Measured scan of single mutants.
Amino acid sequence: DEFHFHWNGRDIRVRGDSEELRRLIEAIKRGELSEEEIERAIEILER
């Protein structure tokens, strides 16, 4: 699976399928994380 979302003017695409990944992306979409937490998560996910 590939998750695709927009954040902070960026087009983010992440491959993978796990419950943890889904929860993280939902939290990002709901605005539950700080900008710094989101940046760090995206860096890890894009590897």
Rank of each mutant, 00 (worst) to 15 (best):
residue 17 D to A: 07
residue 5 F to Y: 05
residue 12 I to F: 14
residue 42 I to D: 00
residue 36 E to P: 10
residue 20 E to S: 09
residue 13 R to D: 13
residue 37 E to Y: 03
residue 25 I to N: 03
residue 9 G to P: 00
residue 31 G to Y: 06
residue 30 R to M: 14
residue 32 E to F: 09
residue 43 E to W: 05
residue 41 A to S: 06
residue 16 G to A: 12
residue 35 E to V: 13
residue 33 L to M: 14
residue 24 L to Q: 01
residue 19 E to Q: 12
residue 5 F to S: 00
residue 8 N to C: 02
residue 27 A to D: 12
residue 37 E to P: 00
residue 28 I to Q: 01
residue 2 E to Q: 07
residue 4 H to F: 13
residue 8 N to P: 00
residue 12 I to D: 00
residue 7 W to Q: 01
residue 45 L to F: 14
residue 14 V to H: 03
residue 32 E to Y: 10
residue 10 R to S: 04
residue 18 S to H: 07
residue 14 V to E: 01
residue 47 R to I: 15
residue 42 I to Y: 04
residue 8 N to Y: 02
residue 19 E to A: 11
residue 11 D to R: 05
residue 16 G to Q: 07
residue 35 E to H: 14
residue 26 E to G: 11
residue 23 R to A: 15
residue 13 R to H: 15
residue 26 E to Y: 12
residue 28 I to K: 01
residue 24 L to N: 01
residue 40 R to N: 12
residue 11 D to M: 10
residue 2 E to F: 13
residue 22 R to V: 14
residue 43 E to R: 05
residue 10 R to D: 02
residue 2 E to T: 09
residue 10 R to F: 03
residue 23 R to Q: 14
residue 12 I to K: 00
residue 41 A to L: 10
residue 41 A to D: 02
residue 47 R to D: 15
residue 38 I to D: 00
residue 2 E to K: 04
residue 24 L to R: 00
residue 30 R to T: 14
residue 19 E to C: 03
residue 21 L to Q: 12
residue 46 E to V: 08
residue 44 I to S: 08
residue 47 R to M: 15
residue 39 E to N: 08
residue 28 I to Y: 05
residue 43 E to M: 07
residue 10 R to K: 11
residue 21 L to G: 10
residue 11 D to S: 05
residue 35 E to W: 08
residue 34 S to E: 06
residue 6 H to W: 08
residue 38 I to E: 04
residue 47 R to E: 15
residue 32 E to T: 14
residue 24 L to M: 07
residue 44 I to G: 05
residue 7 W to L: 05
residue 3 F to L: 10
residue 12 I to L: 03
residue 40 R to W: 10
residue 23 R to Y: 12
residue 2 E to L: 07
residue 30 R to C: 06
residue 2 E to M: 09
residue 38 I to N: 02
residue 7 W to H: 05
residue 36 E to C: 03
residue 18 S to N: 12
residue 36 E to A: 13
residue 11 D to F: 10
residue 18 S to T: 15
residue 19 E to P: 14
residue 24 L to I: 10
residue 14 V to A: 04
residue 13 R to W: 15
residue 42 I to C: 01
residue 44 I to E: 14
residue 40 R to L: 13
residue 29 K to C: 07
residue 37 E to G: 07
residue 5 F to G: 00
residue 13 R to E: 15
residue 36 E to H: 09
residue 28 I to H: 03
residue 8 N to G: 08
residue 10 R to M: 04
residue 5 F to R: 00
residue 35 E to N: 13
residue 30 R to F: 13
residue 24 L to D: 00
residue 27 A to W: 09
residue 38 I to A: 04
residue 29 K to G: 10
residue 27 A to M: 13
residue 1 D to F: 10
residue 6 H to C: 04
residue 33 L to G: 02
residue 27 A to P: 00
residue 7 W to M: 03
residue 14 V to P: 03
residue 24 L to A: 02
residue 37 E to V: 03
residue 40 R to Q: 14
residue 42 I to W: 05
residue 16 G to H: 06
residue 5 F to A: 00
residue 12 I to M: 02
residue 20 E to L: 10
residue 40 R to G: 07
residue 19 E to H: 10
residue 34 S to M: 08
residue 26 E to W: 11
residue 24 L to F: 10
residue 18 S to A: 06
residue 19 E to R: 07
residue 7 W to F: 07
residue 34 S to I: 04
residue 9 G to W: 00
residue 3 F to W: 11
residue 21 L to E: 10
residue 6 H to T: 12
residue 17 D to W: 08
residue 28 I to A: 03
residue 6 H to V: 12
residue 7 W to G: 00
residue 37 E to W: 03
residue 28 I to N: 01
residue 31 G to K: 06
residue 30 R to L: 12
residue 40 R to F: 09
residue 38 I to Y: 03
residue 38 I to W: 04
residue 37 E to K: 03
residue 4 H to Q: 10
residue 1 D to N: 13
residue 2 E to N: 06
residue 28 I to C: 02
residue 40 R to V: 11
residue 13 R to V: 15
residue 47 R to Y: 14
residue 41 A to F: 07
residue 39 E to T: 10
residue 25 I to Q: 04
residue 39 E to D: 12
residue 18 S to I: 08
residue 9 G to Y: 01
residue 8 N to E: 05
residue 7 W to D: 00
residue 41 A to N: 04
residue 36 E to I: 11
residue 25 I to R: 02
residue 16 G to T: 09
residue 21 L to C: 06
residue 31 G to N: 13
residue 20 E to K: 07
residue 18 S to W: 06
residue 8 N to R: 10
residue 41 A to K: 06
residue 5 F to K: 00
residue 45 L to D: 01
residue 47 R to Q: 15
residue 36 E to D: 12
residue 25 I to V: 14
residue 47 R to F: 15
residue 23 R to S: 13
residue 21 L to K: 15
residue 41 A to G: 03
residue 5 F to V: 03
residue 9 G to R: 00
residue 46 E to P: 01
residue 7 W to P: 00
residue 33 L to V: 05
residue 44 I to L: 11
residue 14 V to T: 03
residue 6 H to D: 04
residue 45 L to N: 01
residue 12 I to T: 00
residue 2 E to C: 08
residue 15 R to C: 08
residue 16 G to I: 10
residue 11 D to N: 06
residue 30 R to I: 09
residue 45 L to E: 01
residue 20 E to P: 11
residue 5 F to P: 00
residue 47 R to T: 15
residue 17 D to T: 07
residue 29 K to V: 15
residue 36 E to M: 10
residue 43 E to H: 06
residue 36 E to V: 11
residue 46 E to W: 04
residue 18 S to E: 07
residue 23 R to F: 13
residue 33 L to I: 07
residue 45 L to Q: 01
residue 16 G to N: 06
residue 46 E to Y: 05
residue 27 A to R: 11
residue 27 A to I: 07
residue 22 R to W: 14
residue 4 H to E: 11
residue 24 L to H: 02
residue 3 F to H: 05
residue 32 E to I: 12
residue 2 E to H: 12
residue 29 K to Q: 13
residue 35 E to R: 09
residue 18 S to P: 07
residue 33 L to Q: 02
residue 7 W to T: 01
residue 43 E to C: 07
residue 8 N to T: 01
residue 29 K to W: 09
residue 13 R to I: 15
residue 38 I to P: 00
residue 19 E to M: 10
residue 1 D to M: 12
residue 9 G to K: 01
residue 14 V to Y: 15
residue 9 G to D: 05
residue 16 G to M: 03
residue 22 R to N: 09
residue 12 I to A: 00
residue 16 G to Y: 06
residue 20 E to M: 09
residue 7 W to R: 01
residue 47 R to H: 15
residue 36 E to Y: 09
residue 31 G to H: 09
residue 42 I to G: 00
residue 29 K to D: 09
residue 10 R to A: 04
residue 45 L to Y: 06
residue 38 I to H: 02
residue 11 D to T: 14
residue 38 I to Q: 03
residue 8 N to D: 03
residue 36 E to G: 09
residue 40 R to S: 10
residue 6 H to N: 09
residue 38 I to V: 11
residue 17 D to C: 03
residue 19 E to L: 07
residue 47 R to W: 12
residue 6 H to P: 02
residue 26 E to C: 04
residue 29 K to Y: 11
residue 29 K to S: 11
residue 44 I to M: 09
residue 9 G to A: 01
residue 47 R to A: 15
residue 32 E to V: 10
residue 4 H to G: 04
residue 8 N to S: 02
residue 22 R to S: 09
residue 6 H to Y: 08
residue 29 K to N: 12
residue 31 G to S: 04
residue 45 L to W: 07
residue 4 H to W: 12
residue 26 E to N: 13
residue 26 E to I: 11
residue 1 D to E: 15
residue 20 E to R: 04
residue 19 E to D: 12
residue 22 R to C: 05
residue 10 R to Q: 06
residue 32 E to L: 11
residue 13 R to C: 11
residue 22 R to L: 13
residue 43 E to Y: 06
residue 38 I to T: 10
residue 2 E to Y: 13
residue 22 R to P: 02
residue 14 V to D: 02
residue 16 G to V: 13
residue 34 S to Y: 03
residue 2 E to S: 08
residue 1 D to H: 11
residue 45 L to M: 07
residue 16 G to R: 04
residue 31 G to Q: 07
residue 3 F to E: 04
residue 6 H to E: 10
residue 36 E to K: 11
residue 25 I to A: 06
residue 15 R to L: 12
residue 33 L to A: 03
residue 19 E to K: 09
residue 15 R to A: 13
residue 44 I to A: 08
residue 10 R to C: 04
residue 47 R to L: 15
residue 16 G to D: 06
residue 44 I to K: 09
residue 1 D to A: 10
residue 23 R to P: 08
residue 32 E to K: 07
residue 3 F to T: 04
residue 45 L to I: 12
residue 31 G to L: 04
residue 29 K to I: 13
residue 5 F to W: 06
residue 36 E to W: 11
residue 14 V to G: 05
residue 36 E to L: 12
residue 33 L to D: 01
residue 16 G to W: 05
residue 38 I to F: 05
residue 9 G to L: 00
residue 11 D to I: 13
residue 29 K to T: 13
residue 25 I to L: 09
residue 3 F to S: 03
residue 33 L to Y: 07
residue 41 A to E: 05
residue 1 D to Q: 12
residue 39 E to R: 07
residue 6 H to A: 05
residue 42 I to E: 01
residue 17 D to H: 09
residue 15 R to D: 15
residue 29 K to A: 09
residue 40 R to E: 12
residue 13 R to N: 15
residue 1 D to W: 08
residue 36 E to F: 09
residue 15 R to T: 15
residue 47 R to S: 15
residue 45 L to K: 00
residue 23 R to M: 14
residue 20 E to I: 10
residue 2 E to P: 04
residue 26 E to R: 12
residue 22 R to H: 11
residue 25 I to C: 02
residue 24 L to G: 00
residue 23 R to V: 13
residue 10 R to Y: 04
residue 10 R to T: 04
residue 42 I to M: 06
residue 37 E to L: 04
residue 42 I to Q: 01
residue 42 I to A: 02
residue 31 G to R: 03
residue 3 F to C: 03
residue 37 E to S: 04
residue 43 E to A: 08
residue 12 I to V: 08
residue 32 E to R: 03
residue 45 L to T: 01
residue 36 E to R: 09
residue 35 E to Y: 12
residue 31 G to F: 07
residue 40 R to H: 13
residue 21 L to N: 15
residue 28 I to G: 01
residue 16 G to C: 03
residue 3 F to V: 07
residue 24 L to K: 01
residue 31 G to W: 05
residue 8 N to H: 05
residue 2 E to D: 13
residue 15 R to Q: 15
residue 3 F to D: 04
residue 13 R to G: 06
residue 21 L to Y: 08
residue 26 E to K: 10
residue 24 L to S: 01
residue 33 L to E: 01
residue 28 I to M: 06
residue 7 W to V: 04
residue 10 R to N: 04
residue 9 G to H: 03
residue 7 W to K: 01
residue 44 I to D: 13
residue 25 I to M: 08
residue 13 R to Q: 13
residue 7 W to I: 05
residue 37 E to D: 11
residue 30 R to G: 15
residue 15 R to H: 15
residue 33 L to N: 02
residue 38 I to C: 02
residue 37 E to T: 03
residue 6 H to L: 06
residue 30 R to S: 15
residue 15 R to F: 14
residue 15 R to P: 15
residue 12 I to G: 00
residue 17 D to N: 13
residue 1 D to I: 12
residue 12 I to C: 01
residue 3 F to A: 02
residue 34 S to F: 04
residue 25 I to Y: 05
residue 6 H to M: 10
residue 42 I to V: 09
residue 37 E to F: 04
residue 32 E to P: 02
residue 9 G to S: 02
residue 37 E to M: 06
residue 46 E to S: 04
residue 11 D to E: 11
residue 4 H to L: 13
residue 40 R to T: 11
residue 44 I to T: 08
residue 41 A to Q: 08
residue 33 L to K: 03
residue 2 E to R: 03
residue 42 I to L: 08
residue 28 I to D: 00
